[in-house]
Each structure stands twice: as structure tokens, then as C-alpha cells.
Design a protein around this nucleic acid. Sequence first.
DNA 1: ACCTGAACACCGTTCAAGT
DNA 2: ACCTGAACACCGTTCAAGT
Lengths: 190, 190
Amino acid sequence: VKAVRKKRPYHHGDLARALKDAALELVAEEGLDAFTLREAARRVGVHHAAAYRHYAKKDDLLAAVAEEGFVVLGDRVRAAAARHDDLMDAVRATAGAYVAFALGEPARFRVMLGPRLNRDGSRPTLEAAGQNAFKVLLDLVARADLDPPRERALSIWTMAHGFAELYLRERIRARRWTTSRPSSPPCLTE
Amino acid sequence: VKAVRKKRPYHHGDLARALKDAALELVAEEGLDAFTLREAARRVGVHHAAAYRHYAKKDDLLAAVAEEGFVVLGDRVRAAAARHDDLMDAVRATAGAYVAFALGEPARFRVMLGPRLNRDGSRPTLEAAGQNAFKVLLDLVARADLDPPRERALSIWTMAHGFAELYLRERIRARRWTTSRPSSPPCLTE
DNA sequence: ACCTGAACACCGTTCAAGT
DNA sequence: ACCTGAACACCGTTCAAGT
């Protein structure tokens, strides 16, 4: 072997990664407001100023978390769409994947769609990851260029997002999201 | 007259009210995160500790703003529903009023539906105002007890919320929300 | 190159003291 | 009753200094 790893090295192995994980943990445990650069650094075991070697601002760490989230969401949604030949089936499947992601990883979803990250044109990689995730939906919508299906596809996506938000905020007590009957409009069931 | 009003009295006229207005202003101008008890007090012209005579915590001020918002939303939504005899027309109208409120007063909407206010059973008056606003929708949904209309009503509400969120976060570029054609499912148009 | 110590301006919250 | 002064613990951010 080239070198022996020390027990607690002066240099953290992958501080950037560790900080992202700690941030997500904090959001999951105590909510977006509880996330603090200093607390994240504390959990990782480094001085809080060390974080600035990897993220220029607190929100840049949050943006990094969000970006990863959009990559994951994009993959899931793309996989869901790929399983269907029929256009509207694919739209419904992507909406289902969207909802499943939001309910399955609420902390990530809140960082991604929460209010902290203003979309001001800075953070181009975050923007790209977001666009990429939503592109699946938009491509499907674009393919449905006849008026009713296009509107319906957009509506389904909007509804999926609304359901995710309302459910996570406990404004709705529906337990199931289903868009399984092709002949009827998309619906929630309880 | 009983007494002469001083120019700048030691006691603020209605500090609770003024703080709510200042808070909403701050959120509108710089976003939820920019809102600060100290800054709100600064704008109103009092020592920051004075706020604690009216609100026990920072979030209680936010909760008061949200509560007012729910009262306004409840009124608008109720008025919209009252203008229609047909059940589904009424559902559509309430959804439209919901969207109009969110787009017309984004700051208020964000405080109301944002992440700061955890619904933990404290703040019963806020809870009541929220329930009251949503009750209009739920009553309409309850009246539509046959399966398809019930689901469709719930779906419309969910979609209205999703549209408001996506639009405010600039994730969607649709300019119009319409559910005007009774025969078709609720749809967005661009 | 990567991390720490120390400092600055700011915040939420408290409490004794003023009017 | 309502407000201020002063203080405490905390945070984001910076920067010179350590390894």
C-alpha cells in the first residue's frame, strides 16, 4: 500500500459530500429552517469555516443538494416514461413517479422546490438539472400537440405537483394517487 | 376634544397591526428569508423587543399574517362558490378564486402555505382560519358524493394549488388558468 | 491545498428597568 | 400597560494563520 490512513485525518475525505448529506439530514429531521452551515459542519466534525472551501455561501450547499435531487428525479421520471408506449400512459406514469419521489424523499423535495433557492440565473448547473428533470414531462407534452391531450398532460403534471405539496403540508388526507383509468380524467382517490 | 395627539407618541397606535404589515412588505420585497423581527420593528420605528409584547415568537407574527390571509382567501372562495348553482361550476369557480388569490398576493400565499409554519396543533386560531378557507372546497366535494364528481372536484382543487405553486416558482409558463369547458376535464391553457 | 482561530455584523430571545 | 437598554447564545461570512 502506498500510505496508511490515519484514524482522523486532518483532511476530511470528501467534505463536500459529507456536508450535503448532513444538510439533507438536518432538513429531514428538523425542517428547512433548522439547517445551518455551522450545525452541518459540526455534524461532520470540521470547523464551520471549512465549509467555505467547498461552498461559497450557505445557499450554495443547499443548491448542491437540490441539484442532486433533480438528477435523481430526472432519472426516475425518465425510467417511468420509458416503460410505456402510449403517450398518455407515459404522462400518467411520469406524474406517478413525480409524486412517489416527493412523498418518498420529502426533505429533498422541499430543498428542490422550496423557497430558499431563487432562480435568478446564477447557478446554471442547478438550472440545467432542473430543466432536465422537467424536460421529460415537457417532451411528452410537446408530443401531444393536439389540443386536448396537450392540455391534459400539462394538467396531470400540475396536479401531481399540487398533490405532492398538499400532501406534504398535510392539507389533504388522500392516501393514494392514481391516474389509472385512461378513459376518465386524472383523479385522486381516498 | 379629550386629548391632543402627540406627534410621535411613546405608545405606538397599533403595533401588532403595523408589524404584520411590515412583515408582509418584507416578504414581498425580499422573500420569506429576508423577513426578520428586528427589521420589521425597525421599519415600524420601535425597539425590536417591543414586538414581544404582541407576539411571543417570530413565527407567531408570521402566523398572524397567515391567519389574516386565510380569512381573506376564505371570503373570496366562498363568494366565488356562491355565484353558481351548478356544483361543478361552483367547484371550478372556487379553484379559479384560489389561483387568483395566490397570483394576486404571492407574498401572503407564501406565508400561508410556506414551510415556516408547522401545523403541530399549537396555533388553533390559525388552524381554524385555514380549515375555514378550505372548508368551502371540502363542502363542495362532499356534496359531490358520486364517485366521478367527487374525485374530479378534489382533483381540480389539487390542480389549482399545483398551478399556483408552479407558477409562483416560475416552473410553468402558462399564463392562463381555465376550467371553463364543463364537458372536458379541467385544463390549463397557454 | 485544505483546515482552524478569531473576529465582525447580524439575529432571536430574555429581562430588568424606564414612562 | 407598553416600550427601551443591555445582555446572551447563536448564525453567516471573512481572513490571517496554521499543517
